[in-house]
């Protein structure tokens, strides 16, 4: 079955080292999809391939039937935030949201009512503060990026480590917000995280990436968190063994 995100034969090689090698991955529409893996497992590389930010050596990515490398129209239904490299840092958050809204032909009222839904999330530190994005803290920049990615009701939402750098209560708020989105809309979410607890909480499917390949592909059940923990504990031990063997 063709998923809304469809990855075929995707490989990326840097200096003759294969950092990404995925023969096939189909993500169904309307599901939320979690991506976990240790540092250097290839998560960000995969994300950048999906968003047409790096050129894979082989293979292709299609979003909703659009080959991202050949056609730009995927940008209209894909919201994404990977790092601060996506934020126009000399704008104020209000201006930034206004800009994105404009690109999606949202009116002022539509944007205002959308942002009103995030008042708690922003804790009054973001909107109408007369501060440029570059002067905000890392956590607040992240909030701006995530909420900006949601403007325009995207069909696909792609977030890299959305929970990192956020304080505990914001993490829970974000988790609940994403959960709500998942339940109320048919958005497809692709979320990576180091926090196994958060992803198992609302992702229906979780994939573990290790050294660029998919090593586990699990439908979330009550057992999932333990399964994930076991994997990463073992993975860590193996690394130690490898070192000792050397």
């Amino acid at each position: 079955m063709e998923g809304i995100i469809s990855i075929n034969n995707l490989t990326k090689v840097y200096n003759s080292e294969t950092v990404l090698d995925i023969s096939s991955l189909e993500i169904e529409a309307g599901k939320s999809f979690g991506l976990v893996g240790n540092n250097g497992a290839g998560k960000t590389t995969l994300y950048r391939c999906i968003l047409d930010l790096i050129e894979p050596n082989t293979g292709s990515v299609t979003l909703n039937g659009v080959d991202v490398a050949k056609d730009e129209s995927w940008k209209h239904f894909t919201g994404s935030f990977i790092d601060e490299g996506f934020l126009i840092d000399y704008l104020t958050p209000d201006e930034y949201f206004g800009f994105i809204a404009k690109l999606h032909n949202w009116g002022k009222e539509e944007l205002a009512s959308f942002l009103a839904g995030y008042e708690d999330f922003f804790k009054g530190e973001i909107l109408s503060k007369k501060k440029y994005i570059r002067d905000l803290s890392k956590g607040n920049q992240k909030k701006v990026g995530i909420v900006g990615a949601l403007i325009g009701n995207p069909k696909i939402l792609i977030l890299d480590e959305p929970f990192a750098n956020l304080d505990p209560s914001t993490q829970y708020q974000l988790r609940d917000q994403l959960k709500k989105l998942d339940e109320e809309t048919d958005i497809t979410m692709l979320i990576s995280s180091h926090d196994l607890g958060h992803v198992t909480e609302f992702c229906q499917r979780i994939v573990i990436l290790d050294k660029g390949t998919i090593v586990k592909d699990i439908q979330t059940t009550s057992e999932t968190l333990r399964e994930l923990e076991n994997f990463f504990v073992k993975n860590g031990e193996e690394k130690v063994d490898e070192k000792e063997a050397l």
């Binding site: 950048r48 047409d52 940008k75 894909t78 790092d83 996506f86 994105i100």
Partner: peptide
Amino acid sequence: WEGSFFDGILTRAYPM
């Protein structure tokens, strides 16, 4: 000038 957010330029909803 916009190099620090070039990834954003590439993914936002407008044609190049």
